[in-house]
Design a protein around this nucleic acid. Sequence first.
DNA 1: CAGGGCTATGACCATTCGGTGACACACCGG
DNA 2: CCGGTGTGTCACCGAATGGTCATAGCCCTG
Lengths: 253, 253
Amino acid sequence: MTPVTTEATSDTGETIATPSVLVVEDDPHLSAGVVENLRAEGYTVHSVDDGQKALDFLQNERMSLVVLDVMLPRVDGFTVCRTLREHGNNTPVLFLTARGDPADRVRGLEAGGDDYLAKPFHLQEFLLRVRAILRRWDWYRSVSSSEADAVLRFGGNEVDFRSFRAQSWNGVPQELTEKEAMILKVLAAKPGEIVSREDLLERVWGYDVFPSTRTVDNFILRLRKRFERDPANPQHFLTVWGVGYRFLIEGEA
Amino acid sequence: MTPVTTEATSDTGETIATPSVLVVEDDPHLSAGVVENLRAEGYTVHSVDDGQKALDFLQNERMSLVVLDVMLPRVDGFTVCRTLREHGNNTPVLFLTARGDPADRVRGLEAGGDDYLAKPFHLQEFLLRVRAILRRWDWYRSVSSSEADAVLRFGGNEVDFRSFRAQSWNGVPQELTEKEAMILKVLAAKPGEIVSREDLLERVWGYDVFPSTRTVDNFILRLRKRFERDPANPQHFLTVWGVGYRFLIEGEA
DNA sequence: CAGGGCTATGACCATTCGGTGACACACCGG
DNA sequence: CCGGTGTGTCACCGAATGGTCATAGCCCTG
C-alpha cells in the first residue's frame, strides 16, 4: 500500500503552506478518524500503516508533524522516531499509545518525541496537542486554515469548534458535546454533499466499537434541535433517504 | 569575551527553524558539557559566562530558551530573569542551581522562570526538560512574571503572584500554596482557552511526575472555594468535559 | 522528634454523555 | 392503497467522567 495523500498540496511554497501531517497508524478505523479530523482542521494529511513505510515516506517528504502510533507492524514507533532523529530529521513527533503507562511517556520523549497521548483519547485533546506542536514552529503564525475553520456560520447559527461552544439563531448559547461537534464538523466539511451513515461512523467514531445507525440519527436529531428553527422541517441537516445526510449552509437549496 | 556561537550542523536545511538556546554558566566544564549535549540534540547554542553578558546578549538576540545558572558573577540568575521579564522578554528560562532548596524553586518562579533543575543533574533529565520546555513554548510566551502580570484581578478577586497572597471578592485574605498559585497562573495565562489536565500536570508538576487527575481536580476545587462566589456554579474555573479546564476573567463570557 | 501545613490518593457520590430499543411516522414499490 | 423498510423521536440505562471529602504521607520547622 502506497502512502495515501489527502488534499494534495505542495508545501514547498512558504507563505501559503498548510501544515502537513503524516499519520502512522495500523488500525484503519482510528487512522481514518484521525485523518479526517486533521483534514477538517485544514492540514494536508498523509497516512501509512506501518513503521517501515513511515521511514520510507519520510526519507523523501518533509512533513510538519508525524502522528506516530507506538505499536506498529514491522517497526515500532519508538524505533521509527529514534531512527529519524539519528538521521538528523527533527520533524515534531506526537506519539499515540494504547497503554496509559506514564513510563511510556518518558520513553517516547527519550526516543526524541515531542508529545505523547494515550489511547483512547478525546479527539478534542488530540487536536489541541497537534495545534500546540504546530504553533511552536512558525507554521501556525499566519492565519492558518484551522483558525479560519474554527468558526462555522450557517442560518444565523455560530459554532466555535475549538471551545465546542455555539450560539443558535435565536441567541441561545449552546454547549456542544464532543460527538455532536465532530458530526457537525464532518458534515460541514463538505456542504451540500451527501454523507452516508457509514462515513459518519467511520470518521467520527474512528476507533472503539461501532454503534448502530440509530446512534447517528440521534445526534442528527440533537443538532436539529439546537440549530434548526423548525426541527421537524430541517433546512440545514437534510435527510437523504436510504443513504445518509447532507448539510447546507444556506437553507432550502 | 564575546558570546560563543555554536551552530547546529545536523540541521539539514530544515524549513523548520531550529530552536536556539543560550547557556549562562560560569563553570567552564559544566558549560562545555551542556553546550555539547544541546548541540548534539540539534539546537543552535550560544553561551556566556556571567549575568551581565547574558543580558547584553539577549538585548539583541531572540532565543528559544535560556539555561540560566543561579549563582553567577556580576549579576545573579534570578536578577537576570527578573530583568528580562521587566523588559517584556518572555523567553523561557530553565534555572540551574547548586542546592536543591525548594525555596529556590519558588524564587525562580517568582522571578519569572519556567523550570528548575538542581545540580548535579543527569544529562538525560536535563535534555528532557529542555525538550519539554520547548514543546510548551507557546505557553511561555504568555506566562510572564512582569510587573503587569504579577497581579491578577478577576471577579473581584485579586491575586499577587509574587507573594502568593490574594484577596477574595468578599475581602477575605487568602494565602495560596505554591501549587495553587502555579495552577492559577497557568490557567490565567490564557483566559478563555481550554487547558487539558495533561497540560496542567506537565506544566505545574513536570514532565516526569504523574499525579492522578484527582489531584488536579482537587486544586481546582480549592481555587473555586477560594475565589468563586458559588463554588458549585463556577464562573471563572470552568470544566471542559472530557478535556480539562478553562479560566475566565469575566464570568460567563 | 513532635507538630503543622501541604500534597497526593482513594473512596464515594453526582453528573454527563453516549448508545439502544421502542414506537410512530414517512417514503417507496407493487 | 398497502405493506415493508427506513427514519424521527423519545425515554432510558450503563459507563465514563468530574466533584467532593477524608485520610495518609511528606517535608519543613521548631
